[in-house]
Design a protein around this nucleic acid. Structure first.
Length: 560
RNA sequence: AGGGGUAUAGCCAAACGGUAAGGCAACGGCCUCUGACGCCGUCAUCUCUUGGUUCGAAUCCAGGUACCCCUGCCA
């Protein structure tokens, strides 16, 4: 019995509908999908959508999903990428089990099938060079012209093709082409190239081959060999579909997979093309593929986003066939939603100003209990220290407050979270007029609640850290990499839209003492500031570096 | 002058001839020792457009319009 009867846990989409029908009609008894990256770069959030679709469909319908490296072009592929891709898929939470494949494992079979086509008079060796092939191809509106080599005998083609394989000819001198239709309105049917000569070592099969199949000649056949039932790809492959089917029709393949296309993910405020991401790395605009601002999976991971949140995001945005731009804030919301539940709270002052509480004894320290989560008592509490000198955030003080500001002001009062209500009495400045420290007084009776002695409710609660107990750390605040929602638009240089403030590193942040020996992998909510986690590369015991994963929603900052 | 796609709210998206789901955003309000979280409410007389068929159309038909993809020995 299959699990295909289980209720669909997620929103319906056209792919689920197709699969449900195929299962119901008996066209397929189970679902087999595949995620087929080319190992020529790092995976990004767009790939995550594809991974979630393919692995998710297999999971939901009780089938399986293969991880397959589409490694047909050794000129651009590397072992490093193979390893990184596997790691990212695993990080996302998916498991291909035994089903790890390489298109290159099928090279011999593909070669035999090429021979078969030649034998059938359906493929020929082309001597025209790349430029000539292009001009013979015609244009979008004009038919192409048949190559003079199109009518070579099968014997000659066989001889030439085997010599191509043997490495007798230099790169670019000949290709193998399918003989289809030079006048087809679908350009991919105008005698597409099947094999090209590349004298380069291959990351998976070494130097066994001197000729390599093109994507079109490898993909569908590989799908057939693996028994893929639903071969899901992005929209730009739609025009290749007739070619995909032509090979299945003309070759003795063992199965009949079908291709379906969906709209790739576009995200606002980011670029997704491998070329551009690579450029950002090469130009040093970001620190690497895993820079926390990058939309790569390694970047997102280092930033502190969770796989659960990324998966939730992929579910949320759905799957369709119309070009769409997803607002990056939806991704951020998914991260917040999860972290709000899971992250223990802590207090950290990012831009410290000292507040001296003049009526608090200089030699006194109180241990206060602070809940680790406001809605989850089972998460327990921790001790924070209250002393005469504390740090508060510069953003929480205004000498001349703007309208609606209900934090600390001179003469004003504010509740220190888990502590006392304090009033600011004076500001100490240096000769330049910059604020050195604040002085204030506390109300000893105000430990509980937010009411003053005369029963008024204070409107503001701010976070703070005991100065003698504070741990100094570096905190990196990340913003979107681009300041324009569509840096790719207009045909101009996307780099002109780079956000100059996409990272701000604060080196003198004051963290509560409990964070000193905390687990490096824990994601915290620094109350009122956002979610943070130690940077997995740069944070050291005694020299902590925290990354801001995402801010809290902040109505005040958007209103003021 | 070709071929293939796609058009439902600010952004996604469901609806499969029976009278426009849901999410995000936004906006009001409540709650709150995080301006967080949570909660309540509002948010398409209408589905790119023009006609047609039908008792009934986002769904079917015809004609427009807009946008995306295709002229790599990339995938």
């Amino acid at each position: 019995m299959t699990s295909t009867e289980q209720a669909a846990p997620t929103a319906n989409n056209f792919l689920r509908t197709i699969i449900e029908e195929d299962l119901k009609s008996g066209k397929h008894s189970s679902v087999v999908t595949r995620f087929p990256p080319e190992p020529n770069g790092y995976l990004h959030i767009g790939h995550a959508k594809s991974i979630c679709i393919n692995f998710g469909l297999a999971r939901d319908f009780g089938g399986r999903c293969h991880l397959r490296f589409d490694d047909t072009n050794p000129a651009r592929e590397e072992r490093e990428y193979i390893d990184s891709i596997k790691e990212s898929v695993r990080w996302l939470g998916f498991d291909w089990g035994e089903h790890l494949y390489y298109a290159s494992d099928n090279f011999e079979q593909l070669y035999q099938w090429a021979l078969f086509l030649i034998g059938q008079g359906k493929a020929y060796v082309e001597d025209l060079n790349a430029e000539e092939i292009r001009s013979y191809r015609g244009t979008l509106t004009e038919p192409g012209t048949e190559s003079p080599y199109r009518t070579r005998s099968a014997e000659e083609n066989l001889d030439l093709f085997s010599r191509m394989r043997a490495g007798e000819f230099p790169d670019g001198t000949r290709v193998l082409r399918a003989k289809i239709d030079m006048a087809s309105p679908n350009i991919s049917l105008r005698d597409p190239v099947l094999y090209r000569i590349i004298h380069a070592p291959h990351p998976h099969v070494g130097d066994a081959w001197k000729i390599y199949p093109m994507y079109d000649f490898a993909h569908g056949q590989t799908d057939a060999i693996e028994g893929i039932t639903h071969s899901i790809c992005t929209l730009e492959f739609e025009s290749h579909k007739p070619l995909y089917e032509w090979f299945l029709d003309n070759l003795p393949v063992p199965a009949r997979p079908r291709q379906y296309e969906f709209a790739r993910l576009n995200l606002t405020y980011t670029v997704m093309s491998k070329r551009k991401l690579q450029e950002l790395v090469q130009l040093g605009i970001v620190s690497g593929w895993d820079d926390p601002r990058m939309p790569t999976l390694v970047g997102i991971k280092r930033r502190g986003y969770t796989p659960t949140a990324v998966r939730a995001f992929c579910e949320l945005i759905g799957v369709g066939r119309s070009d769409s731009w997803i607002d990056v804030s939806i991704l951020e919301e998914c991260v917040r939603a999860e972290l709000n539940e899971s992250a223990p709270r802590a207090m950290a002052v990012l831009r410290p100003i000292k507040l001296v509480i003049d009526n608090y004894p200089a030699d006194q320290t109180e241990e206060l209990q602070a809940a680790n989560h406001p809605q989850q008592p089972d998460k327990g509490s921790r001790i924070i220290h209250f002393t005469r000198e504390i740090w508060i955030d510069a953003d929480d003080f205004m000498e001349t407050p703007s309208k609606g500001f209900h934090r600390l002001t001179v003469g004003g009062e504010v509740k220190l979270r888990f502590g006392y209500i304090v009033t600011c009495t004076s500001v100490v400045r240096d000769e330049q007029g910059t604020v050195l420290e604040l002085h204030g007084e506390y109300d000893p009776a105000s430990r509980e609640g937010i009411h003053t002695a005369d029963g008024r409710k204070v409107k503001g609660v701010i976070h703070w850290v005991s100065a003698p107990h504070a741990v100094t750390a570096e905190v990196r605040l990340f913003e979107r990499l681009f300041s324009d929602p569509n840096p790719d638009w207009g045909g101009g240089d996307y780099k002109q839209f780079l956000n100059p403030g996409s990272v701000e590193s604060l080196s003198d942040c004051k963290l509560e003492a409990s964070l000193a020996g905390s687990d490096a992998g824990t994601r915290y909510q620094f109350e009122r500031m956002g979610y943070f986690r130690q940077d997995p590369k740069d944070s050291l015991p005694g020299q902590l570096v925290f990354n801001r994963i995402v801010t809290l929603r902040d109505v005040w900052s958007t209103k003021k």
